[in-house]
Design a protein around this nucleic acid. Structure first.
Lengths: 184, 184
DNA sequence: GAGTGGTCTAGACCACTGA
DNA sequence: CAGTGGTCTAGACCACTCT
């Protein structure tokens, strides 16, 4: 299906749609390679910038993933998209005029019981952060969540941070630090 | 703070960091205009492509928003960001070649203890779904999450569903049903 | 070494908004 | 109208991976 240059729809949009369909139809299976950027340029007669714009969109949606020096792969549909779906869950609510919110109820450093210890693969006497949050839609409680974070990976989790900032902000922050360390 | 061309950190990353700090420091207030792309090009001595790459990142994180034919504004730091941040957390991992994943460890219908009952505003003897999930990055456990879902709001939560499909898919599904009822 | 994706440049034309 | 962001091109060099 060639792209339509005269269409008011941008080329990269047309291209994402095209590529998305390849995956939905099952033509491209999870973990299989897709054509290289250069090949896609030739096939659709567009510049590499446009191809990259289209691919970035799909990577962002979690449908594709790339590897340095290797190629671009089709992502596994379940895990990856779960996170994007969560995004659209709250998105959905907002579109319907409901207000998603969350409250931090507890935020403590605790010695985990043996079940948690085993699951998280902790050493003896290793502590975890326990954070309890209530998720609401329009002030109505939907879900209560207890999160246990491996302390080692979130070294200086500030109690005030959790109150003020959403949990995942902190995780990102810590996470970035962790990666940096790994690279150094 | 000029950008460092010799640094191994890409220019657009340096630029996003720079701009992010402007907002965190309060130099750029919500709903105020930021310099135009052309001005940023001149100020930092980079091409427009690089500036746009940096700005796109921040728009994606929900820190900025753009208007056609107008300019780029600083966003209000509200709920929206929390979700975008969460989104970019997994995004980040994927970009760095790490694989975010999750495993369902438990999925049961239980009679909640009094704490959970109070928090969720449940009636006497009302049941909840308890779902325990482990979040990993590259097979390394990061977080253990226990979720307690109000049964009434997720009426026919299928045990197999949870195994196969990500939790939030189900929530969305149920949630849509509920909203439909409300609207009707 | 050849091929890949990651970054970056310097141009270009367009649709849109505001004065 | 001049200025903005939205799209697109055709080059370029790099770090990385595989063979």
């Amino acid at each position: 299906m060639p792209l339509d240059e005269k269409s008011p729809i941008p080329l990269y949009h047309q291209l994402t749609k095209e590529l998305r369909e390849n995956m939905e139809n099952g033509d491209w299976l999870p973990h299989s390679l897709i054509p290289s950027e250069t090949e896609l340029c030739e096939k659709y007669g567009v510049s590499r910038g446009t191809v990259r714009q289209a691919l970035s969109q799909l990577v962002q949606e979690g449908l594709l993933y790339r590897k340095q020096g290797r190629e671009t792969f089709v992502a596994e549909p379940k895990i990856t998209q779960q996170l994007n779906k969560f995004y659209s869950f709250a998105q959905d609510m907002r579109e319907k005029g409901l207000k998603p919110s969350s409250k931090v109820l507890q935020n403590e450093e605790i010695l985990p019981d043996s079940y948690i210890k085993n699951v998280l693969g902790l050493k003896e006497k290793e502590m975890v952060y326990k954070i309890m949050r209530l998720r609401l839609a329009d002030e109505e409680p939907l879900i209560l969540e207890a999160s246990y974070l491996v302390e080692e990976l979130f070294p200086d989790l500030d109690r005030e941070d959790v109150e003020k900032v959403p949990l995942y902000d902190i995780i990102i922050k810590k996470y970035r630090i962790r990666i940096t360390r790994k690279v150094e």
